[in-house]
């Protein structure tokens, strides 16, 4: 088990290098450091001297990926790419191009992201499981048919309309919660309500349908037939046997998204004006701040890889038949 985890961690290193290289190429294929310096200095007519100073102070004066003048290994290490990427592996994000400490910013902005993402996930799963079980209980009846139809209708509506509709109904018509914004402490609660509700409602369609298929697949299995043959009531079969066994695929499906909750939702955050990591990333992209984009992409990939690893481990925990080698 431990050997497996170590091997997976080592395997992650080339992937992370690849991710970094890709981001690097994507970002600098059109934007030369000169362009970035010019936009950061905020003037079209900056002197070549000023650009040079800015590049020197931000470490962009070296060759990009390959340094022909350096000796030996220095050909690869004495470059912008190496200098900028290698510290990321120690989670030292450094300073953004506008001079702010990225690590500190991420620490600050992580909490609003989590405050939206965690309740949305938990409430969403509870709601979806309830609906899914309900429809599976009445399988083959009109409730089943119309339930599935409603799901398909719900998932055909663009998430934009859930957001706009939620803002219109709850904020404009009934004045229950503010349209957007964020606050610290317990004051944040009223700002969180709308994004969470919108997040949950927009997920009902696809979630319920997915859980229904999951439960129906489980209901078709042999142990369920055995349980019925023993004379158990339908409720008992469904809630004690089917639900428990269906938790295995359900759990592993959830574990994979857990680490990514830190990243926040780009779309929801930029809609509701929440100062989380999602809006941080969007800002970074729009200001063409390579340091921020690179850090967030790196963080996202690390979390994604952790998620995959956690999924594998959770498989062995919930299902003893699975062995990792």
């Amino acid at each position: 088990m431990i050997a497996y985890i170590v091997r997976r961690m080592l395997y992650a290193i080339p992937i992370l290098i690849g991710v970094n290289l890709l981001t690097f190429i994507l970002f600098f294929v059109v934007n030369t450091p000169d362009d970035i310096a010019r936009s950061q200095l905020g003037d079209r007519r900056v002197t070549a001297q000023a650009i040079d100073t800015w590049k020197r102070s931000h470490g962009y004066h070296k060759p990009m990926i390959y340094n022909g003048n350096a000796q030996g290994l220095g050909k690869l290490t004495d470059t912008v790419f190496f200098k900028k990427s290698v510290r990321l592996f120690a989670f030292d994000f450094g300073r953004s191009d506008s001079g702010r400490d990225i690590g500190y910013d991420i620490g600050q902005r992580m909490w609003p992201s989590l405050a939206i993402a965690v309740p949305t996930l938990v409430v969403g799963i509870l709601v979806n499981i309830t609906f899914g079980l309900f429809i599976a209980f009445f399988r083959g009846t009109y409730i089943d048919f119309w339930g599935v139809v409603t799901c398909v209708i719900l998932l055909s509506v663009s998430s934009l309309f859930y957001i706009i509709g939620g803002q219109y109904l709850l904020s404009k018509l009934f004045h229950l919660v503010p349209i957007s914004g964020y606050d610290t402490g317990t004051n944040a609660l009223k700002f969180l309500l709308l994004p969470v509700i919108v997040g949950v409602v927009s997920g009902i369609g696809s979630g319920t349908r997915w859980y229904r298929t999951l439960f129906l697949e489980e209901i078709g299995k042999d142990y369920v037939r055995t349980a019925r043959a023993k004379g158990l009531s339908e409720q008992r079969v469904l809630f004690r046997h089917v639900l428990r066994n269906a938790l295995i695929p359900l759990l592993t499906g959830i574990v994979v998204v857990l680490p990514l909750l830190f990243m926040g939702s780009l779309i929801v955050e930029s809609f509701f004006g929440v100062p989380g990591l999602g809006s941080y990333t969007i800002d970074g992209i729009q200001r063409q701040d390579f340091a921020i984009v690179r850090s967030m992409v790196f963080l996202g990939s690390v979390l994604y890889i952790i998620g995959l690893l956690l999924t594998d481990i959770s498989y062995t925990l919930v299902d003893p038949r699975v062995r990792l080698q």
Binding site: P14, I15, I267, V297, G300, S301, Y304
Partner: peptide
């Protein structure tokens, strides 16, 4: 496998945003 794991570990929206911005500059 390396290729697609690398690509899929970059959050999709980020990749799209970066690429579209590049195109805009071009």
């Amino acid at each position: 496998q390396y290729l697609y794991t690398t690509l899929s570990s970059i959050p999709g929206v980020l990749l799209i945003a970066a690429a579209v911005l590049i195109l805009q500059v071009y």
